[in-house]
């Protein structure tokens, strides 16, 4: 049991799919195509109630960003918060694996999904987070 527990991983959020090719997955409204990352009661666009899972492109373009240097207690700074356009679906994520300054992070920059460890809990489960890094 300890062996399997030691290798167990859990994603930071349930719309991050781990494995050989980590990617994000959205709930897509089968009626209008609107995409959402959270658990849905209905569609915010058409009020439809039928959804299907769709994979989101793992590469995209930085549409907006900020470099946060003051945050709530417990939130490590600095970090780069951004909106990534992944093939027409907007994704909220941090820009990682590059210095957090305006010389290294640019609007329109090409980025790709990357994962990292958030640490291991008492049961040996490792949480995996995601961000986007320069492509």
């Amino acid at each position: 049991m300890t062996d399997t527990a030691a290798s167990a991983q859990v994603p930071l959020v349930n719309y991050l799919v781990l494995g050989d090719r980590p990617h994000l997955v959205a709930n897509q409204c089968t009626n209008c195509g609107a995409r959402f990352f959270d658990r849905r009661n209905a569609c915010a666009s058409c009020s439809g109630t039928s959804f299907e899972k769709v994979d989101i492109a793992t590469e995209g373009e930085v549409r907006s960003f900020t470099i946060v240097t003051l945050a709530a207690p417990g939130v490590p700074v600095p970090f780069v918060a951004a909106v990534i356009d992944c093939g027409g679906t907007s994704v909220r994520a941090n820009i990682i694996n590059t210095p957090p300054d305006p010389d290294h992070v640019k609007l329109g920059m090409r980025v790709r999904l990357a994962t990292y460890s958030l640490g291991t809990d008492d049961q040996g489960t490792e949480a995996i987070g995601f961000g986007f890094e320069p492509a």
Partner: peptide, 20 residues
């Protein structure tokens, strides 16, 4: 213990980890 909760099934607060 990493325990998913909320609408995104997050195992820890996401402020600062997934944007701000």
């Amino acid at each position: 213990v990493w325990e998913p909760s909320g609408r995104f099934g997050a195992v820890t607060p996401t402020d600062g980890r997934i944007g701000t």
